[in-house]
């Protein structure tokens, strides 16, 4: 199978993730979309690794997974405490960073 198809799939997943981040309000969904974008990148890295015949892309994919795991821990903690104080998981309600 042509590895370029994996790249198309990665681009499609990334686009879905990005548009989800921009469009959805729920923090959990937003978070899932971010994960989707990260994994789209991983897929692209692995595909490139296969195309170029070396392991650099696969190693970076591992790094990305570790970072994503750490991000999940911190991000979910933030979302939970946000939900506790505001009783809402909508990101638009947390718009305090303005004058």
């Amino acid at each position: 199978m042509n590895p370029v198809n994996y790249l198309y799939l990665a681009a499609l997943l990334f686009t879905i993730g990005a548009s989800g981040v921009l469009i959805r309000k729920n923090a959990i969904v937003l978070f899932m979309c971010v994960e989707l974008m990260l994994n789209a990148c991983n897929l692209a890295f692995v595909a490139f690794s296969r195309m170029h015949g070396n392991l650099d892309g696969q190693i970076i994919a591992f790094f990305t997974m570790v970072v994503a795991a750490a991000e999940v821990v911190v991000g979910l903690a933030i979302i939970v405490s946000l939900f506790r104080t505001r009783h809402s998981a909508s990101v638009d309600d947390a718009s305090l960073m303005k004058l």
Partner: peptide, 17 residues
């Protein structure tokens, strides 16, 4: 210029994208 800072995380994300 300040009006651009509306506090919505998603609009910041748009500008980032």
């Amino acid at each position: 210029l300040r009006k651009l800072q509306n506090g919505y995380a998603r609009s910041y994300a748009v500008s980032m994208f």
